[in-house]
Nucleic acid binder design. Structure first.
Length: 911
RNA sequence: GGGAGAUUAGCUCAGCUGGUUCAGAGCAUCUGCCUUACAAGCAGAGGGUCGUAGGUUCGAACCCUACAUCUCCCACCA
């Protein structure tokens, strides 16, 4: 802060005690204090209250592994703004917090931690591993929620849930059993996405395609037998090389999989290969013989036209294999290394094997060519490992049945997406969704409630006892014991628990008719990122419709990604992500919250810049100083009410702004809502209103003005509260005349009231302020100080109007005199506002030529403007086609322009 | 490869049904200022061929057509 050396910043005068407050707002103590009190008061607690309208948000449960990052800051600030406003609107506002067990992410973390201690997951076994995992969760799992409190998040902490707690696990199991019995869950061998690092299957949605520069290897397979002998006349000259020396060349990007080859496929219409009917070829290096098959699936114009068929390691090859009844040879272990079936390179990792086989092929002369080739690889969203298509036994949920209604409710706006453009994305996904692979070969998660009988068949049941009963029934063997049953080793996908979140947090599965679920469900708004639109949002809609026959929420607000100011994603590697807690420390939670919201339209990425939170902090400071001013005023109750006009005007502005604010909220334009209050506070209240009513230094104010001003400030605090809860609560109480008062946290949200003559007031003040602005411009141009008393002579046909605002113009313009005249005095600088002309006598020394040039320029512009309007009005077709009100407006514009031109011409004459 | 969206001031974005305040806001920039609430501030100013080229219309940032560029989503050609 820059301080003036001669100025007293702390005023010892006890007559104005508040002035001893620092000129800047200091958030740290204030925030801790109020958060604690809010909790003591139980403001965030919500319960089914039939007298109130419920308003519910369930938090997107952060991973237990997570620590607060900028994305959470944005996301949770928005939720808190919505919840706090709803609470003030008198709704029963319920924000349910919690965490997600994040199956694969957490397991990976715990595995890594154990590894550091020299412990292998497989050595200690499932039970012991889970002990470690829970220990870890107890230690770190709650950190992120504690951090949210510092942001001011007004969650009902008593309702904190965890997706893997016993109750929620029960919900998951119930749903699994139910869907299984409905025939929607099935078990089967399918080609799935296998993550060799996590050693588990993952769903299609957890796979990320990455562009890579890959290589295409052309391998030579020796033709060992053919019904037709190789006849060179059958082979075109160009294509000769494909089978030269009795070889067929096959293109592949994965040479290490040749040991799993079961055929080479060519297109039956391809003349280059027609002689190979019934032929066999030898796998390079390995020497195993495989047939040549013909299928139109093979493109003649891609690669060499010949395709190696490897059913175990490629979905297309798998389908081809099914069609041609080919065997499946899986040469990969779960961790991506080669197994004995590969015969060669056994034990090597797939990528090492690739390097080695390429070398060996080359040495053997079986590598015809290597091409650079732009391709994509599928990677695991969580571990980043390259995915292997793998044939394995997994559990699946049929999606078609659920996708249909879930699409419909978004199409017909029962669930509204904000911004609406995501509707398209959503539709495409819903129309193309495939069955959901829900089993994971992990331990951290809900174990699948399927129990295998000794004969290999299985039953699905909520509890082991129930399973035993079913098993006895199913097998007809009444002597079966629990020991004879073996529960499925796999756990369920994390999202198989999160999709139940809006229901399960209210115990809607355990007790589907309980008071909470009936009251709080469906929830109102969901705030989350578009990256989990399918993972989570779509599936919650499905679960909601399936289990409550009702959508889980009415609005989905999709935030953007927080990036750095160069547009890069924030990441640990780049080190471009600020620590949110440091930011809160430095700028205050309110400053950070508003900073985040300043630039965050729904669905757009937010380019984070520290300038934003600085702006937020500065806004807090502005508000703080407005408070200091008002609080410092002394009242003289003998003084008459001197500010009728400013009070009436600001009230009109305020009511208009409240209506505008509500409109922005309706449309989920949160940053626009913030900007509306920001400008209302900074521009209208501080820059204009307070300057109008502010008494001269150490002069008292009249009681009426103070009363109105205090009320205004209180209303502003209410409007600001959802955005900046801490400072508003602090000032709200500091503003209280005597004793404790109710909290602004639970104050009633202002309703816009209609103000009589509102439009006239607003328009009149605009004109007055334009004149003030004109005066200040002259001051600036002429290098006059802001307080040097000036004289203003006004020549206007709206004298009555200006008389009403005269006191304001005098005060804000620092005028010693304001008079009206028919003509301007000589030796004055003038400016034109509307059709009025305003003169400021300059005591002689003004530059006439410069003045003349300035006015002439303005005149020229006005004349040009008049020309264009006249031209438009003179156009017959315009006159015929334009709507009457448009015509009327054009005429008005013309009249205004003419008034201005006259005024300017007068001004020129008087110079 | 398929689809969706975007392109407006230095930056981030508004701009509804073509005509009001149609070219706006915040930030940044420039100039002046210690003026007794606030220099984390005050006052004022400058800044844009609305991606390009055509078209429709009396009239286009807005509608149509091409092109360019960017972003996102989806995708089983080895």
């Amino acid at each position: 802060m820059r301080l003036h050396p001669d100025r007293q910043y702390l005023c010892p005068n006890t007559q104005f005690p508040i002035m001893s407050l620092a000129t800047t707002y200091s958030p740290t103590d204030v925030e801790a204090k109020w958060y604690q009190r809010w909790q003591e008061q139980g403001f965030f607690k919500a319960s089914a209250n039939p007298k109130k309208t419920p308003y519910t948000i369930v938090i997107p449960p952060p991973n237990v592994t997570g620590v607060l990052h900028m994305g959470h800051m944005l996301n949770n600030t928005i939720q808190d703004v919505l919840v706090r406003r709803a609470r003030m609107q008198g709704k029963e506002a319920c924000w349910v917090p919690g965490t997600d067990h994040a199956s694969i992410a957490t397991e990976a973390k715990v595995v890594a931690l154990l590894k550091e201690q020299g412990i292998n997951k497989l050595d200690i076994g499932r039970e012991k591993f889970l002990e470690h995992a829970f220990e870890w969760k107890e230690k770190y799992g709650g950190i992120i929620l504690e951090q949210l409190k510092q942001l001011g998040a007004s969650c009902d902490w008593d309702r904190t849930r965890f997706t893997m707690e016993p109750e929620l696990t029960q919900a998951v199991l119930r749903v699994f059993v139910d869907l299984y019995r409905k025939g929607l869950i099935y078990r089967g061998v399918r080609m799935v996405n296998w993550d060799p690092q996590g050693r588990t299957a993952i769903s299609d949605e957890e796979v990320i395609a990455k562009d890579v520069q890959a290589k295409m290897y052309h391998l030579r397979y020796e033709v060992v037998s053919s019904q037709l002998s190789v006849d060179s006349s059958n082979v075109g000259p160009d294509n000769g090389q494909l089978t030269t020396d009795n070889y067929i060349t096959v293109a592949t990007s994965r040479p290490e999989t040749i040991m799993a080859d079961v055929a080479v496929a060519v297109n039956p219409n391809d003349p280059r290969f027609s002689h190979l009917a019934g032929a066999k070829v030898r796998i390079p290096l390995l020497g195993r013989e495989i047939p040549v098959i013909f299928d139109e699936y093979v493109s003649m114009d891609f690669g060499t036209g010949a395709l190696k068929v490897t059913p175990a390691h490629d979905i297309n090859d798998y389908n081809l294999g099914l069609k041609h009844n080919l065997p499946v040879i899986d040469i990969l272990n779960d961790d991506g290394s080669l197994n004995e079936k590969a015969v060669l390179y056994v034990g090597q990792d797939r990528f090492a094997a690739r390097r080695n086989i390429v070398k060996d092929l080359e040495e053997a002369g079986l590598l015809a060519k290597v091409e650079e080739y732009a391709s994509i690889v599928q990677t695991s969203e969580r571990t980043k490992a390259v995915i292997e298509p793998k044939l394995s036994m997994q559990w699946f949920l049929k999606m078609e049945h659920m996708a249909k209604p879930a699409l419909e409710v978004v199409e017909n706006d029962t669930v509204k997406l904000h911004p609406a453009k995501f509707k398209n994305t959503y539709r495409v996904w819903m129309e193309n969704v495939r069955d959901w692979c829900i089993s994971r070969q992990l331990w951290w998660g809900q174990q699948i409630p399927a129990y295998y009988l000794p004969d290999g068949s299985f039953v699905v049941a909520l509890t082991p006892d129930e399973a035993l009963e079913l098993a006895r029934e199913q097998s007809g063997n009444a002597s079966l014991q629990l020991n004879d049953l073996r529960q499925d080793e796999d756990v369920l996908d994390t999202w198989f628990s999160s999709w139940l979140w809006p229901i399960s947090v209210f115990d809607g599965f355990k007790d589907p008719d309980n008071a909470d679920i009936n009251y709080f469900y469906p929830t109102n708004d969901l705030v989350t990122g578009p990256d989990i639109l399918f993972f989570w949002v779509a599936r919650m809609i499905m679960a909601g419709l399936e289990y409550r026959k009702e959508v889980p929420f009415k609005n989905v607000y999709l935030t953007g990604i927080v990036r750095d100011n160069q547009g890069r994603k924030m990441s640990k590697q780049l080190g471009n992500s600020p620590d949110p807690l440091d930011l809160i420390q430095q700028f205050g939670a309110d400053g950070v919250r508003t900073g985040m919201l300043f630039s965050a339209p729904a669905g757009n990425d937010l380019l984070y810049d520290e300038k934003l939170v600085e702006q937020g902090r500065n806004f807090c400071n502005k508000l703080w100083n407005a408070f200091r001013l008002v609080k410092g005023w002394q009242v003289d109750s003998t003084l008459p009410f001197a500010n009728d006009k400013p009070v009436a005007w600001f009230n009109a502005r305020l009511q208009a702004a409240i209506a505008e604010l509500d409109d922005h909220f309706e449309k989920f334009r949160i940053s626009d809502a913030l900007m509306t209050v920001y400008k209302l506070v900074w521009d209208d209240f501080c820059a204009q209103y307070l300057e109008m009513v502010k008494p001269a230094y150490q002069h008292p104010i009249d009681a009426e003005t103070l009363r109105h001003t205090t009320t205004f400030l209180e209303t502003l605090l209410k409007l600001l509260h959802p955005f900046m809860p801490f400072i508003t609560e602090e000032l709200w109480h500091a503003l209280a005349e005597r004793g404790p008062r109710e909290y602004v946290t639970v104050a009633a949200w202002p309703k816009p009231s209609t103000v009589e003559n509102s439009e006239a007031l607003l328009a009149g003040m605009d004109k007055a302020l334009a004149v003030v602005s004109g005066i200040r411009t002259v001051r600036n141009q002429k290098g006059l100080g802001p307080n040097k008393p000036l004289t203003l002579v006004a020549k206007t046909d709206e004298q009555t109007l200006f008389t009403e605002y005269e006191a304001i113009i005098r005060k804000l313009g620092s005028l010693s005199e304001l008079s009206y005249a028919e003509a301007g005095p000589a030796g004055a600088v003038s400016f034109v506002q509307g059709s009025g002309e305003f003169f400021i006598p300059m005591e002689g020394h003004i530059d006439l030529a410069a003045e003349r040039a300035r006015v002439e320029k303005e005149l020229e512009y006005a004349q040009g403007f008049r020309e264009s309007v006249m031209k438009k009005l003179g156009n017959e077709k315009f006159a015929q086609n334009a709507k009457p009100e448009v015509l009327e407006r054009e005429r008005q514009k013309l009249a205004d322009a003419e008034g201005k031109i006259t005024a300017l011409e007068q001004a020129l004459k008087s110079l």
